[in-house]
Design a protein around this nucleic acid. Sequence first.
DNA 1: GGGTACCTGAAA
DNA 2: TTTCAGGTACCC
Length: 280
Amino acid sequence: MPELPEVETVARQLRPALVGATIQRVLVKDQKLSDLLAWELEGCTFVDVTRLGKQVVLSVSSGSQAAYVAVHLRMTGRLIWDDGTPLRTVQFQQAALQRPPIEKHLRAECVCSSGRLSFFDPRRFGTIQVTADYESLRPVGLDPTTEDFTERALVKLLENAKQPIKQWLLRQDRLVGLGNIYASEILFASRIHPERLGAALVTDEIKQLRLQTKRILARAIRHCGTTFSDFQDSTGSVGGFQRYLKVYNREGEPCPRCGALIERIVQQGRSTFLCRGCQQ
DNA sequence: GGGTACCTGAAA
DNA sequence: TTTCAGGTACCC
């Protein structure tokens, strides 16, 4: 589920709730996450929640000791804070369309003084890593929401890109944070055909690519990672479902820009959506 | 680089 | 029943 904006949203929403809470007990329900137990997290206090790439990083400390719990949600992970007030499971809008999390999918839990932080993950792809070295968690790819994502930097990264641009955008060792949905959306907004080779893009296209990447990510973050729906009302109405997405999951629908039918192609085993009218 | 594997559940 | 899923580590 989560690409950069969704992970950013989770981090932002958890931060104020979690900071200051002290961990009393750590429960691990899924053996794959048992590394968690090797750390003495009981007694530690949450001091920050940040995002690194697509990971949510929970910073904890106990006296002078610091540790960092890096949670990668992969496809279906969810981090939910429950402090007894009405449960805000709506972390980002896609989540609002999911069922509420169920006990069967609870993989790990952190019981705190003021509430509990639960990690749900039906598909069990999610990972949790703990380290004392924050820098070791930093991804190699460039974060496109930072100032370092300049036109020059993108030009440089694309110089040797022998892959189709869509596949290249998904590489976390180049840019971090994009996933299958935003990659299609960004290429549509940039009017670049997803099968163009990265190294073949011309200056104007690279300009657009950078601009649209920044624009789309910023807007998505502003909307709390509202990738799929634009539901605003508390009734949970999904009338505006998918209004935000221009091409993703819209095969056969008319392109909102030129009216041509949106197509779905498969690249490296994954769906890409495009408009041939707009993306030559 | 390109398939395949990892898992489970929802939808076709 | 089959296919698909917003991610990535691992194999050749």
